[in-house]
């Protein structure tokens, strides 16, 4: 009777170990994962980007050559659209969806602007809020009430150290504003699973996508969300281009 119990315990323990190993190996098997690349374009004339007059904050104005422009639609000469968040809105399995990247991106307040203007984050991913200016900032993200994230705001006098925070629920996207400088505006997109934000040339790459069928979403602050259904194969890139229509 006693030995039997022991045997059963050993069996279940080894099963547990194997199971855990399988889960872990699924996470780290980079070779078997695909990626999604693409370019985001804007079709039509972008809205006028009004220059920002920072004359009331001379230390910030000094960091810019002329008047910096609003960053709500940043379009390059060939129509490529920057600051678009691309993420997998459907199709991710539990493990891949719940993995939290360990790197800590930085959300910087510099020259009285948020750099980057749009930051994408995984649920539970820590990020650092930095004040590089010679003035106080009061960063104030305003998540939708009831969506699971708490609204907060925090002052950072010049010279105070960065602080680290994270978001607990998915939300695309949390608007962020500075309570001291009304023109300062940005977004934090909180998603589950891999994500990317389009760069200056409108291109993006989402790495580490397990093979499978997905709905890819692209979100832009003025033009909203577009989706595409794609299938990602192991080890090779899949293309998903998006084109937003100017209003």
């Amino acid at each position: 009777m006693k030995t039997r119990c022991k045997f059963a315990a050993m069996i279940s323990a080894s099963l547990l170990v194997i199971g855990a190993g399988l889960i872990v190996s699924q996470k780290v098997s980079a070779a078997g994962e695909g990626k999604i690349t693409g370019t985001i374009k804007l079709d039509g004339t972008p809205p006028h980007q009004k220059p920002i007059d920072m004359s009331k904050e001379p230390s910030c104005q000094a960091k810019h050559a002329g008047h910096p422009i609003t960053t709500e639609t940043v379009v390059s000469a060939n129509g490529a659209l920057q600051y678009v968040v691309v993420y997998l809105s459907e199709g991710l399995s539990g493990a891949a969806a719940n993995a939290v990247p360990s790197e800590q991106p930085e959300f910087n307040q510099t020259g009285c602007q948020y750099v980057p203007h749009v930051i994408a984050l995984d649920v539970g991913q820590s990020f650092k809020v930095v004040n590089s200016d010679q003035t106080s900032h009061n960063i104030h993200p305003q998540p939708k009430p009831g969506a699971g994230n708490q609204e907060w705001n925090k002052s950072q006098p010049p010279g105070t150290p960065p602080f680290v925070v994270k978001w607990n629920s998915e939300e695309v996207a949390v608007p962020v504003k500075c309570n001291i400088h009304p023109w300062m505006h940005g977004y934090m997109a909180v998603v589950k699973g891999p994500y990317a934000v389009s760069g200056e040339n409108g291109s993006f790459t989402i790495d580490g996508v397990p093979p499978g069928s997905y709905t890819v979403s692209a979100w832009q602050e003025l033009y909203g969300t577009q989706t595409q259904k794609i299938t990602v194969a192991a080890g090779k890139p899949t293309t998903a281009d998006f084109t937003f229509k100017a209003k």
């Binding site: 004359s55 009331k56 003035t135 106080s136 309570n179 001291i180 400088h181």
Partner: peptide, 11 residues
């Protein structure tokens, strides 16, 4: 007018 009162100015 709030926390940024000290910094509310214009030229």
């Amino acid at each position: 007018c709030g926390l940024g009162h000290y910094n509310m100015k214009a030229y």
